[in-house]
């Protein structure tokens, strides 16, 4: 029942939409955003107390102009600051932007396993400028690099397809680093002060990634 294909007309991605509440548990003044906001204070948001993501994904930043610690938001409910930070270092969000997602190649199911149809591919390197030992991940989430025999630091990253989140600790904990398609040749380019990443996962949303989506049958 969950394998129905959506009609093509329903596959147009909805425009990004996020509701920011000034208090915890979706209370207080509410501000809705449908695009990037480089400084929430300028937009009249005094404090970010809770967040509802109606259509995502989004990335929040501790500082204005998309700087500082990153917080990835996918569709869902975030009633307190501790539901979006993984590091507990800061409860501040000062800027937000939608994450650009590239639609997965639409291939008939039997060919989806071939290399050309990969939806997500990332290569992480021990040293800057894509050198040293590397770990390559295709269409999977990896909660532990050590379990795959990779125990080195991560100083540069190349995303060939898809959008990813890297984490300082195993099991998607600690600092979060957003990786969009492109090259990050030094850890400062992905916003890390220490070149340590021990887990990485895909960002998936049925608006772009139909494989594995849930379609309730009528």
């Amino acid at each position: 029942a969950s394998e129905h294909q959506m009609p093509a007309s329903k596959q147009q991605p909805a425009s990004p939409n996020i509701a920011i509440f000034e208090q915890e548990n979706f209370q207080g003044r509410c501000h809705e955003l449908s695009g990037a906001c480089p400084n929430l204070k300028d937009a009249g948001v005094d404090k970010v107390g809770s967040i509802l993501v109606h259509s995502g994904p989004w990335v929040g930043y501790e500082q204005a102009s998309c700087k500082g610690e990153q917080f990835v938001f996918e569709k869902g409910e975030y009633p307190r600051w501790d539901s979006w930070t993984n590091s507990r270092r800061s409860d501040s969000i000062t800027s937000l932007r939608p994450i650009k997602v590239v639609r997965a190649p639409r291939q008939p199911l039997p060919t989806r396993q071939t290399k050309d149809s990969q939806e997500h591919k990332i290569v992480l390197y021990e040293n800057p400028s894509f050198t040293g030992k590397k770990i390559e991940i295709i269409d999977d989430d990896v909660p532990s690099f050590h379990a795959h025999g990779y125990q080195e630091k991560v100083s540069s990253v190349r995303v060939q397809s898809g959008t990813w989140v890297g984490y300082q600790y195993p099991g998607y904990r600690g600092y979060q680093y957003l990786f969009e398609k492109g090259d990050y040749k030094d850890s400062s380019e992905f916003g890390a002060q220490h070149p340590q990443i021990q887990s990485v996962r895909r960002i998936r949303d049925m608006q772009w990634h139909q494989r594995g989506a849930y379609h309730p049958s009528n």
Binding site: E74, D141, Q207, A213
Partner: peptide, 16 residues
């Protein structure tokens, strides 16, 4: 409603 899952889902709502 039920959903059989064999992959990771960082947001169940994003996937329907």
């Amino acid at each position: 409603r039920q959903w059989e899952i064999s992959d990771d889902y960082p947001s169940l709502q994003a996937m329907g």
